[in-house]
Amino acid sequence: MWRDAALVAGKDLRVEGRAKVAVNQVAPYALVVLLLFGFAFDQDRPLLVQAAPGLFWMAVLFSGLLAVQRSFSIESADGAIDALRLSRLEPAGIFIGKVVAVAAQLVVLEALLAFGVVVLFQSRLGGAGLLVASTLVSTAGVAAAGVAYGALCVGLRARETLLPLLLSPVLAPVVLAATEAWRAALGLSRGDGWRWLGILACFAAIYLAGGAIGFGALIEET
């Protein structure tokens, strides 16, 4: 399974390396979203600082939807999904590989967005351990749920609109917990950030395990 995962992740990242959709389209879009949030709350600077973690994760959510759609559009564009189904690759390996590729792109994007939050919202990043840990665990959860729902939608005619509709509610707990963990890390709330990290880890584990088990059936339905 891990060999298959490495093969699929390598392929997806190689495709992305050449196409540069994440760099040329998704990242600028994420920054524009962040900028628009900044305009929307510009009149109330303290509120903007308070809301920065939530705005950051909303921008990650929007960008993640695009990354997931891209991950499956490369499979459906020329019917490569059939070749995957006809291969010897383990479905769980394909799932993990796609999660790794999406997560790798999201991590780069999040670094860029974190820089944007500091510059645009004048937030001070602190609590590095909690911040990094919660970001990585949340990213795993977003990528896992995204890939599972992306597989579900890949064969559907209205997949571009259906994926955000189906995926956003599923990711709501991750966005909520990640926001709270960030708020605690940045000293914006008195809550226990590590407790939120535990909740995030539970969701990520559920999405990863569920996706790995169910991915074979999901790509059968396309």
Binding site: K11, R14, V15, E16, R18, A19, I74, A77, D78, G79, A80, D82, A83, L86
Partner: peptide, 12 residues
């Protein structure tokens, strides 16, 4: 199987 589509990745 070679279907109507080629099953290729354009960017590879």
């Amino acid at each position: 199987l070679l279907g109507h589509q080629n099953g290729l990745y354009d960017d590879l």
